[in-house]
Nucleic acid binder design. Structure first.
Lengths: 262, 262
DNA sequence: AATACTTTTCGTACACGTACTGAAAGTACA
DNA sequence: TGTACTTTCAGTACGTGTACGAAAAGTATT
């Protein structure tokens, strides 16, 4: 009858697993077979594996072998492989220190988004998990980044609802940039197939696609440039202007209140 | 010595595979064992499988079984599973008719981007391939969408280089929106875990994360709203304004030339 | 001490994508 | 006719994520 079954990953983000190094001794105070591995150990081992063999080589089976435990045992501490990566990345994100941010709302938004972007872009395997549902909700300490952006939008005069949308739009753009870039970088790493060296759009009809044909030989070069920050600025400017045009009073009031330059 | 080996997927996008229904008879004019399957048949079967069992059920093995051929045979007509999906999606994109587009550059950009977005968002499995390298380069007829956006940017006064960047930023934003949305839609379809029903950010420190706590109970609702077009408008406005501020002369000239309203 | 209950562990099994290898089935030329 | 060459086909095998279910190892209760 009692279908309790509460594996480790069911209780919330904060894994209250005792810090016993090995499963030896250690009074548990709770019933059931004593665990031989903790979530923390698993994450440690995963990091070790990634640092040693590269993140592509990280697999559930290898991880279990590294830990000297059965493969399926892992699934009592972690729901998925996705869950595992999510834990790794949020744990890392939580270690990013909160820097001094500009006081001016717009600049604060941009600085925070750039921070998020750079942090995530540094982890190639982040791409695997970035779009996972509930990513934002599973952030730990690092929710301050979300708060910072939302607060910036509100301080600039957005309504709370607008501010949430501002955050989401920035998130979309950032995720897209990272994902697209991650995939094309990966391919650039592969020994280039010859077809990937020739200019794009070369076989196109000049009369129907004049611009593409004209720029074709420079397309790859231009695409390789890092223009995240320009795009971000454009997006933020556009979003804030849009919000301002929807509810002009608030913006004016907010600007008067904090005396921002602009 | 002669390491010719030119499987079907090596020659460019246009698969010049003869349309023989079965491999029977059919003089080839070329040497080698006559193929029993064509790329077109494979794509047909894939579409059939997707329509019948859903795209999650599409696997290389099932597809081969459906076709009555050996699993590995598929790999002579298609490089990857990714390649297969890419072929499916570009073929579909090529069937989207080119509609009447607004004459005004900015509106033309937005209309085209919206078209791209809606077309891709309709295919849940597009998400699997959207970030694939060379996606743009492998478009067939539908490159007109790229041309349209680039042309719009140029017509508005952007340099060709700026126009390419405009396209890329729009592409990033669009891809991000689709991917994030696809993943959260998928989870919403799963029988909701109870943890996913409670409001976000409920356990947070009110003094440090005031905005998140305040909006927490509405976060999910707001995130569920479709705000692609607002975000797109904001982004495009921002990008065009940015380009204008970098090279003001061109913009003025372009505006005078085509007499756009603004 | 014996039994019930709870939690963790892990062996087995399935479907997947795909690398490798060699057989099969044609054409071209001797 | 036979031999070489080219292309396509497919069997086998590896490593993957993970569903399922049974065994193990504790505590709690009788």
């Amino acid at each position: 009858m009692s279908t309790a079954e509460a594996p480790g990953w069911r209780k919330g983000t904060a894994g209250r697993n005792d810090g016993t190094v090995s499963g030896r001794n250690a009074p548990h105070g709770r019933t059931g077979r004593p665990p031989v591995t903790s979530r923390a150990q698993i994450l440690d081992a995963a990091r070790r594996l990634i640092n040693r063999d590269g993140w592509e080589k990280l697999s559930i089976r290898r991880l279990a072998t590294e830990l000297g435990i059965g493969t399926m045992t892992l699934y009592h501490h972690v729901r998925d492989k996705e869950d595992l990566l999510l834990l790794l990345i949020t744990e890392y994100a939580d270690q990013v220190p909160q820097p001094d941010l500009p006081g001016e709302p717009r600049e604060r938004i941009i600085a925070t988004a750039t921070l998020v972007h750079d942090a995530l872009a540094a982890w190639p395997w982040a791409a695997e998990v970035l779009t996972a549902d509930g990513f934002i909700g599973r952030l730990g300490e690092s929710v301050w980044m979300v708060e910072s952006i939302v607060a910036g939008a509100v301080d600039h005069g957005c309504t709370p609802e607008q501010a949430v949308h501002v955050f989401r739009h920035i998130w979309y753009y950032t995720v897209g940039e990272i994902l697209v870039r991650a995939h094309s970088a990966q391919q650039a790493a592969d020994a280039g197939r010859p077809a990937d060296r020739e200019p794009l759009f070369s076989g196109l009809d000049t009369s129907r696609m004049p611009h593409l044909v004209a720029i074709g030989d420079r397309w790859r070069t231009l695409s390789a440039q890092d223009t995240y920050s320009q795009g971000l600025r454009a997006l933020v400017d556009g979003l804030l202007a849009q919000a301002a045009s929807e509810t002009p009073h608030r913006v004016a009031a907010a600007k008067r209140a904090d005396g921002s330059a602009e």
